[in-house]
Amino acid sequence: MPASSAYKIALSMAPATIEALVDGGYRLCAMFAIQMTNDAARPTVAFATPNIAPSMLIEWMPDVAAYTSNDPIVGGGLIKPGYQTPIAQGQTFFVTTGGGGDIKSGGPPSKISIANTTSIPFTSGFARSFATSETPIPIYAAPLYGNQTNVAVPLPKILLLFTTAAIKPGEMLESLAMRFLPAASYSSSLLVTAAQAQIRELSYDINLGWNWGSYSWAELVAANADFAKVLIERD
């Protein structure tokens, strides 16, 4: 796939902001949105780094992998794929014994299907990798019951935030509300709709927050927002 098809976000920060983030032990976290009608689906952290720099390029391809896991869907839990395979819209991942399986065409043209052909339940979803990482990380998790099919669509939307919480890639994160992470500091979140033809440029200030020129391709998300409602869009 040509490099021009990558999604890119250019984040800039002033020295005073960098100093405050580093001194506070903050890390930059990212989560992706998907489209799916399932109230049990939960978003997971796709990216988390303490390596804060004045200029940061967040880059990823539209490609995703379908995965299965035996890890339970619990708030704060870590989802580790037992099996994953590249998949495209219009294809179906037919899950067989052990969580592996085959990819076949013939599914809904604009959607991705994961079909469990066994009576054993799994946790399943999509995984995605950034330009700085090779291994795809789960971007959401949903229960895949026996003999059930889950249908979803990856969206070009990414949520960014800074927090001092020790969040890890693959961790389920329903909310940053005080009841969920009582001993942490965290910024407001910014939900960005990326575009393959244009780099989204934005900045962050430790006191003023996010600045993206107030363009329609981004919106602020409150720190105590329900991320499942923000990032799991109903079809």
Rank of each mutant, 00 (worst) to 15 (best):
A194P: 09
W212I: 01
A166F: 08
R179N: 10
S187D: 03
K168M: 08
S129W: 03
I139K: 13
Q148C: 07
T149W: 11
N207Q: 11
L155C: 08
L155Y: 06
R200F: 13
I158W: 07
S113L: 10
A177Q: 13
L191M: 08
A165S: 10
R128V: 00
I206Y: 15
E134F: 07
V192Q: 05
L181I: 04
N147C: 06
T117R: 13
P136A: 09
S203V: 04
P138A: 05
K168G: 00
S188M: 09
Q198W: 07
Y204W: 13
T193S: 14
E134R: 10
S124T: 12
L208K: 10
S185R: 15
F180E: 12
L159V: 01
N150Y: 06
G146P: 04
L176Y: 15
V151W: 04
T118A: 05
A115D: 11
P136I: 00
A184F: 02
I158D: 03
W210K: 08
S185T: 08
S185Q: 15
R128D: 00
P156M: 01
L190Q: 01
R179P: 01
F126R: 04
Q198N: 15
I120Q: 13
V192F: 10
I167Y: 00
A166R: 14
N116H: 09
T132A: 15
Q148Y: 08
A197G: 09
A115L: 13
A184V: 12
D205L: 10
R128C: 01
L202I: 03
T132S: 15
S129G: 07
V153H: 11
T164G: 10
L181P: 00
E174C: 06
I114N: 10
S188D: 12
A194V: 10
S185A: 11
S113V: 05
G209H: 06
T164E: 06
Y140F: 14
A115T: 15
A141N: 05
I137Q: 03
T193E: 15
A183Q: 13
T118K: 06
L190F: 04
S189C: 10
A165L: 02
S189I: 00
I137L: 01
S133L: 04
P156H: 06
V151H: 05
N207A: 09
L181F: 14
V151K: 06
A142F: 08
I139Q: 11
A195M: 11
T163Y: 12
I120A: 14
Y140C: 08
R128N: 01
G209K: 07
N211T: 02
L144P: 01
E201Q: 14
L173K: 03
P121T: 01
F180I: 02
